[in-house]
């Protein structure tokens, strides 16, 4: 009976899932909302630095890869559940994340996080008190704000970094903390409404691809090719192509 149930379940599943047969394809999760790391282009396809890099790594490793768009806040749980094999979503390597997943070597150097405020406002960054701070949820910036500035201030977290920037523009927040890597186009696009302020804070150990701890083979393959691309200069070339103010290896 158990066997019969199992066979029936497998059969019915095979009709609309890609279970065992799709194992050869490496599925890479990305957010599609973190330009220039990853975004949805005008053609409706995933594009950006990480998509180019992921495709190049897969080409060199002779792997068939596929990018999956998924929400940022449930990305690690879904990796652990096996819904995809890798995360390439501008995810910084941190001690906290290393407790649950593993990372390849970094493919983008540690990027200082910056503070953004509205033009015309000013804050004493050495003694912040009573201000409203914003960041994207489950990011290194969010972790930093909660660990160091939560007492005496209000920390508000958003599903996307745009949410934080929107609320800063609307005056609901005083300060937003984001990755330095893509702050320049935001400041430019808001036409002088926002400015950088305060110190730069270096957080995390660079951006790497997240893998399940047991997938050591996949991790080592990616790390080997990332090292290869660092050595032959192609990684720096790719970074320079995508970032306005690139951090190079």
């Amino acid at each position: 009976m158990k066997r019969l149930l199992f066979a029936a379940a497998t059969l019915s599943m095979a009709a609309f899932t890609g279970s065992a047969s799709a194992q050869q394809t490496v599925r890479i999760a990305t957010e599609g909302a973190y330009a220039p790391y990853n975004f949805i282009n005008e053609a409706g396809q995933p594009a950006g630095f990480e998509i180019d890099l992921g495709n190049e790594i897969c080409l060199r490793a002779e792997l068939a890869c596929e990018f999956v768009i998924t929400a940022w806040d449930s990305m690690i749980p879904n990796l652990l559940a096996g819904n995809y094999d890798l995360i390439m979503a501008g995810m910084s390597i941190t001690e906290e994340r290393l407790q649950t997943i593993d990372f390849t070597d970094d493919y983008y150097p540690p990027d200082p996080a910056v503070f953004v405020i509205r033009t015309g406002t000013a804050f004493d960054f050495d003694a912040l008190a009573g201000v409203r701070l914003g960041a994207q949820t489950a990011t290194i910036q969010a972790g930093y704000l909660q660990d160091t500035l939560a007492t005496g201030n209000t920390v508000v977290l958003f599903d996307t970094f745009e949410g934080a920037v929107n609320d800063l523009l609307a005056g609901n927040l005083d300060i937003v903390m984001i990755d330095g890597g893509f702050v320049a186009p935001i400041i430019e696009a808001t036409g002088g409404a926002l400015v950088l302020a305060g110190p730069e804070v270096t957080l995390g150990g660079g951006v790497g691809a997240g893998v399940r701890k047991e997938d050591t083979e996949l991790r080592d393959t990616f790390t080997r090719i990332i090292a290869e691309m660092k050595a032959d200069g192609s990684l720096n070339a790719l970074i320079a192509e995508w970032f306005d103010d690139p951090m190079l290896f």
């Binding site: 005008e42 745009e162 929107n166 995508w242």
Partner: peptide
């Protein structure tokens, strides 16, 4: 997704929220 502000020209039309 389409309505979210875009700050990055290579991702398409730059527009507010």
């Amino acid at each position: 997704r389409l309505g979210a502000p875009n700050y990055f020209p290579r991702a398409g039309l730059v527009h507010p929220d």
